[in-house]
Design a protein around this nucleic acid. Structure first.
Lengths: 242, 242
DNA sequence: CGCTGCATTGATGAGTGTCAAAATTGGTGG
DNA sequence: CCACCAATTTTGACACTCATCAATGCAGCG
């Protein structure tokens, strides 16, 4: 028995734009079920053409692209409200894998109805494109980080970004955010080695700015952390979701 | 006097899916004019909310994100058929700047009619989202390159990618592609220093794989270049355009 | 209680950045 | 047609960030 869209847990959160009753009814038709997965479960595989698309209702995951050498690049961290499978749905092939890192509940949509979705619900199609543009925006920023920032700056940047996402979702208590990600994930997200990431985290901790170990991100001085990261602290704005 | 969509130069090219007469008429209503710009002209500025969106009819440009330090990250190279301003149109703010590098002709659309576009022409809205997904796919691959590949691999990868784009557009003669981009641009695209980029290009040239100087990319051995780049050579597939 | 995964630390070296300058190219005006 | 200038490419020397290798510590868990 799945949750009715009417009671969608995402629609309550400040982080997201509120859907009207009417829109929720639209989505109800499009929704074909719910999927619950355990940590470590692959949700979508790089290169695959999955028949299904998802919106994350709860839990966290990770997007990563695997190279033939065995190395991997973390593309992004997956939080509630994220849409998964856009590339599979449109291009017919995922550019990266998505894996659950905690228990997750996913809202399942059917790829085959994807186009009718555009035909019948232009507002929602617009929102979908909005999300795609947001993702593109974020990836550009990430690219600039990996390409241009030093290890210290890059890690500070990642901490700020993730902290703010967690904050918007109400996951922060005492400037502390529990996450299912390790230092290895941070390293793979920023193109750094694990060892160097660890030592750089140590420097940020010494400076009393922030720390990240044992799957806990703690921010002590957001302002100065953002300063080190050479980034602006922008207020969070509610975004659409599907 | 602008070109009628009916005679759109892009619609002739193999690189793109052919639009039906009907669809061309749709686009004609959406098109508000044409813009011709000289090399060096900024088309969209990072952080701005431009009222206009563009499709590149001819010429080349560059997307780049500027950091506060003065460093910059090249996000992508802009070729004919590319859509410019998605982020401005939807998010209200560009994550990067776009600058002309040759003379360019741009097809101009109006941001204010953007939503009606979704309402009235779902097929075209679908194509737009397709393009957004493609861009996201490409950025993920770029991120993996900058994060995980060595300088030699990264440069080889960039050469393969750009060469294949040029090929699809019929711009290659004698395995040679004239481009408005310098070694500095390559360096900024891959997060490398200019000097190291130059020396690495020298190594690829020594190995008789490829060369890039004086704004000319020459590929001598695509197979082995792709090998060095650790990437698969995928056949090009026609894509939509707006 | 011995795994296994994760965090931490030290030693060493390769890859890449930075600095400086020369060589080359292309464009422009006299 | 030549001289000059700006942009780009190329080269050499050197410094340093960051990767790699190796080992230890530490906590959770079957």
């Amino acid at each position: 028995m799945t949750t009715l869209c009417k009671y969608c847990p995402l629609n309550q959160k400040d982080a997201f734009q509120t859907l009207k009753k009417e829109e929720l009814e639209y989505m109800q038709k499009f929704k074909v079920g719910e999927l619950a997965v355990d940590p470590g479960t692959p949700i979508l595989m790089q290169g695959s053409m999955a028949p299904q698309l998802f919106t994350v209702l709860s839990g966290m995951g990770i997007r990563e692209r695997h190279l033939k050498t065995g190395a991997k690049q973390v593309i992004n961290f997956v939080f509630p409200g994220d849409f998964i499978g856009l590339q599979a749905g449109l291009l017919g092939e995922m550019g990266h894998s998505v894996e659950a890192r905690t228990q997750m509940r996913l809202c399942v949509f059917n790829r085959s109805e994807f186009f009718s979705f555009f035909r019948n619900h232009p507002e929602r199609a617009f929102d979908l494109t909005w999300l795609a543009a947001m993702e593109e925006h974020f990836l550009g920023e990430t690219l600039a980080t990996v390409g241009q920032r030093s290890a210290l700056q890059a890690i500070a940047w990642a901490m700020v970004k993730i902290f703010q996402r967690g904050e918007a979702l109400g996951m922060v208590r005492n400037n502390t955010l529990d996450l299912p990600y390790t230092q290895r994930d941070v390293a793979d997200a920023l193109g750094l080695s694990l060892v160097h990431t660890n030592k750089t985290l140590g420097r940020l901790k010494e400076r009393q700015l922030a720390s990240w170990s044992d799957r806990t991100l703690q921010i002590n001085d957001l302002e100065n952390l953002a300063e080190v990261a050479m980034t602006e602290l922008k207020p969070y704005q509610p975004r659409p979701f599907l």
